[in-house]
Design a protein around this nucleic acid. Structure first.
Length: 828
RNA sequence: GCCUGGAUGGCGGAACUGGUAGACGCGUUGGACUCAAAAUCCAAUUCUCGCAAGGGAGUGAGAGUUCGAUUCUCUCUCCAGGCACCA
């Protein structure tokens, strides 16, 4: 018997245990059903799950359970992104090894996740900080090296002073560290890089198959980040020197407007070109100023100086001065630009500042060439002052001029990307060691596969002093060269933790594989991930890196397919009182406290009901209570009418349905259809409201005439309504659904039941409500039989009492009738 | 500056291909039950004029297309996110 009071505590633990005992969520490749891989971004094990996790996993579990009911062989795994700085900080503060701290946190969070009742296949748990996992990452790193896709380079890197480590470009956000928000500085350092730029074109073209499956803004952000520019590289011979300066431009059409050339201070030829008096001093000044720049610094005035050298224009043969400009970035293009002040705003400003003459107009804007230019003109037009190219429209001139340069062998058309290679070295302990050995005789030698993994030592001290503890470790870096056996030094930098998360989704397909990262057959069975849920903050980090890795793994034959994640849902943040939950603001609500007070079903339901998934969700205590109230209301419905449910069903054919019965059935099937559609289109909040509507309807109907529903036909309708409710709510509030399903007499669990199908024939009514308007304003509503003709409608409408004041004495201009919807009387 | 989204009651949010704006929930108000309270159930709840019947206005602002616009087009304002001397 259903107890009077809904008390989630007992129910939830019971069903979680039963699901576990019966291995309900174990995913198996041998199933005849179509596969469905549903994944949420895995958590960093900080110690406790937070509201963001809860929202994330509620969405993932909703989809997983729904797809399971729709007949899919569902894989929903979970794991731990368990390398990272907080473990090292904990180590310093508590004098505990990061491994120990991390594994404790994992154990703790596992308990919390289990109490939410998420349907994970726990046998596939992946923990990235364990050697079983990172050894494959190290193996992949050596493969990158072997294929020429990993290299070491000394250069300016982003440095987080608080984390005491390097950051990739993607990890600097508005000049601050993505993790700790500290101001990032620039430092000269030798680093390992992965050549993500080699895949820039594929990362861009791959977006095509993600259209309409990924949020547009994520695609746009990635496109912008990769930043494709089509143009050309053009060479300028240096006067009196053997070298040439190569520039990159997107406007080869303005080549005849070049009045000087500007190079970066860090340009390799800069020093050599400095012939003017004091120019070397100037160069040094600019070099220092550029190096001291913070990544987010706003640059007001362009600074530069004339080197004293000249370059020869490749087509006109004219001499143009070579300048150094602090606005020219060495890292982009060739570190040198051709200056066309008339058609480039930056060149214009620079030329104005230093009173450089020769504003040679190439693409006139109307009669603008006669006026004094106030700014550069970057619009379209027909070329002038361009020799043989005069009269061409500037778009076609781009190709024409590049072609000319190509025949003269002083230019080539290219595509330039904004994307830079991914710096993966981190000067930290708690990460996967980069498997490299430095030998005085053999140079840089990768650790052979048989010697992997390079494990992190357990005997390490965390002093909190500067530098990587691995560097201070007595033996870690001391090793032998694998080639010549002479004493050698081991790399002490570890890998960026984003490397682990770049391929973890594939490891889930074969998490225990000990001979490879994963077996290809298993990866090919499960991949790609069909549904991926996580925060939008990873648009240009994790989601870009994973796509890169997927293409790499494909090219190396580890898996098939071009993209790792077919469909992406980026969920919004959970905020409180309009602000992000944070300890400093004191507005943190922990999932634990909510689970305690209301149970997992309420917590999950609210996470899905309070806002559309992609929007921020303002945590509202009253709203949570509202969701709890709804579940209680549903429970009470069963408690109060359990006698009606217990009796056997009648045969459908013999039933004479009353109008009331029909209307309840209509509502039931309407709900099934609505919930199905809304879940498919990710409108989970709206889906829940449909279930609420049916519950409201049942309350209305049952108090009204209970006896009616206890007769043989009424019972059937009621039972159908109740069962449909439980089935449709099973992905949202699985424990309660399971319990009431059981109470209704079902011997098998609702988690394995099929999603209900709606009958369209039951949705149709013989009548419809016609909305009657006069000149577009609603004046009356009336019930009419379906199939009524326009003429009949018009006849009836024009006689309506309520319309008289609005149409009497006026002329009928038009009568609009949208069948079974609206009638509009247009009068003047 | 550039690129994306947004803007609907007191609040979170609904609204099919242009066709009843405000579903559902929160809050508020009233009623029932109760000695009373809580809980529960029922009802009302965009604003405004009106005793009422009923009228008027209304989806950030302004225009346009249309019989009819939250929905389509243009201009503008504000908000959020991303990028930013990228040549």
């Amino acid at each position: 018997m259903v107890s009077e009071k809904y008390s989630p505590k007992g129910i939830e633990g019971k069903w979680q245990q039963l699901w576990a005992d019966q291995n309900v969520f174990k995913a198996d490749e041998s199933s005849p059903k179509p596969k469905y891989f549903c994944l949420c971004m895995f958590p960093y094990p900080s110690g406790n799950i937070h509201m963001g996790h809860m929202r994330n996993y509620s969405i993932g579990d909703l989809i997983s359970r729904y797809k399971r009911m729709r007949g899919f062989n569902v894989l929903q795994p979970i794991g731990w992104d368990s390398f990272g700085l907080p473990a090292e900080n904990a180590a310093i503060q508590r004098n505990v090894h990061p491994r120990e701290w991390t594994l404790q946190n994992i154990a703790q969070m596992k308990v919390e996740l289990k109490s939410m009742g998420i349907g994970y296949d726990w046998d596939r748990e992946v923990t990235t900080c364990l050697p079983e996992y990172y050894r494959w990452e190290q193996m992949l790193f050596t493969k990158f090296l072997e294929k020429g896709l990993a290299y070491k380079k000394t250069g300016q890197v982003n440095w987080c002073p608080k984390c005491e480590t390097v950051l990739a470009n993607e990890q600097v956000q508005e000049g601050a560290c993505w993790r700790c928000d500290s101001q990032v500085t620039i430092k000269e350092l030798s680093q390992w890089y992965l050549k993500i730029t080699a895949y820039a074109d594929q990362l861009l073209s791959g977006h095509e198959q993600l259209q309409n499956k990924w949020p547009q803004r994520v695609i746009d952000m990635q496109k912008h980040w990769i930043g494709e520019s089509r143009g050309g590289r053009i060479q300028f011979q240096l006067e009196g020197m053997s070298q040439k300066i190569e520039v990159f431009t997107t406007r080869p059409d303005t080549l005849f407007g070049v009045t000087f050339v500007t190079i970066a201070a860090a340009h390799p030829l800069a020093e050599k070109l400095c012939k003017a008096p004091d120019s070397l001093k100037e160069l040094e000044k600019i070099k220092v100023a550029v190096a001291l720049r913070r990544p987010d610094e706003e640059i007001k005035d362009k600074k530069g100086f004339f080197t004293g050298s000249f370059a020869i224009h490749p087509l006109t043969g004219q001499k143009v001065p070579v300048w150094v400009g602090d606005f020219v970035v060495m890292e982009y293009g060739t570190g040198a630009v051709m200056a066309v002040p008339a058609h480039d705003q930056r060149d214009f400003e620079f030329a104005t500042t230093y009173r450089l003459p020769l504003l040679q107009v190439i693409v006139p804007k109307g009669d603008a060439q006669k006026e004094n230019l106030k700014e550069a003109y970057t619009g379209p037009g027909q070329l002038i002052n361009s020799g043989a190219f005069d009269g061409l429209d500037n778009e076609s001139a781009k190709n024409a001029i590049l072609k000319e340069l190509e025949t003269k062998k002083c230019g080539v058309s290219t595509i330039q990307y904004r994307l830079r290679d991914w710096g993966v070295s981190r000067q930290r302990f708690w990460g996967a060691p980069i498997p490299i050995i430095y030998c005085d005789s053999c140079g840089t030698v990768p650790v052979p596969e048989k010697d992997l993994p390079v494990e992190l030592p357990m005997d390490v001290t965390f002093s909190g002093k500067q530098g990587n503890p691995l560097e201070h470790h007595p033996t870690f870096s001391k090793t032998q060269c694998p080639k010549c056996q002479k004493p050698a030094r081991r790399e002490t930098d570890t890998m960026d933790t984003f490397v682990e998360s770049s391929w973890y989704y594939a490891r889930y397909t074969d998490p225990k594989c000990s001979t490879a990262p994963f077996a290809k057959a298993k990866a090919d069975y499960w991949l790609p991930v069909d549904y991926y849920v996580g925060g939008v903050e990873h648009a240009c980090m994790h989601l870009l890196y994973s796509r890169f890795f997927h293409k790499i793994l494909r090219d190396w034959g580890y898996l098939s397919g071009d993209e790792p994640f077919s469909r992406l849902l980026t969920q919004g943040m959970v905020i409180k009182d309009g602000a992000k939950m944070s300890k400093s603001k004191g507005n943190v609500v922990t999932p634990g406290s909510i689970l305690d007070r209301f149970g997992a079903d309420t917590a999950r339901l609210f996470s899905l009901f309070a806002a559309p998934p992609e929007k921020d969700l303002d945590w509202n205590e009253k709203g949570v209570e509202g969701c709890h109230r709804f579940l209680q209301r549903l429970w009470r419905l069963f408690y109060q009418h359990q006698s009606l449910l217990a009796e056997p069903k009648a045969n459908e054919k013999e039933i004479q349905f009353s109008e009331k019965c029909l209307s309840l059935r209509r509502k039931t099937h309407w709900m099934i259809q609505k919930m199905t559609d809304d879940i498919e289109s990710e409108k989970f909040n709206v889906a829940i409201s449909a279930a609420m509507e049916l519950v409201n309807e049942l309350y209305g109907v049952l108090t009204d005439n209970e006896k009616f529903f206890s007769s043989s036909d009424g019972k059937w309708t009621l039972q159908e309504a109740m069962e449909s409710l439980l089935l449709c709510l099973a992905p949202f509030s699985p424990h309660l659904s399971e319990e009431l399903w059981h109470e209704m007499g079902h011997k098998t669990m609702i988690v394995g039941a099929s999603w209900p199908t709606f009958r369209p024939d039951l949705l149709t009514e013989s009548k419809f409500t016609l909305v009657v308007q006069v000149n577009g304003k609603v004046r009356e509503r009336v019930e009419l039989p379906k199939g009524i003709s326009k003429d009949e409608v018009q006849k009836q409408v024009l006689q309506m009492e309520k319309l008289k004041p609005f149409i009497d004495g006026k002329t009928l201009k038009q009568f609009v009738y949208v069948p079974e919807r609206i009638a509009n009387v247009v009068v003047v």
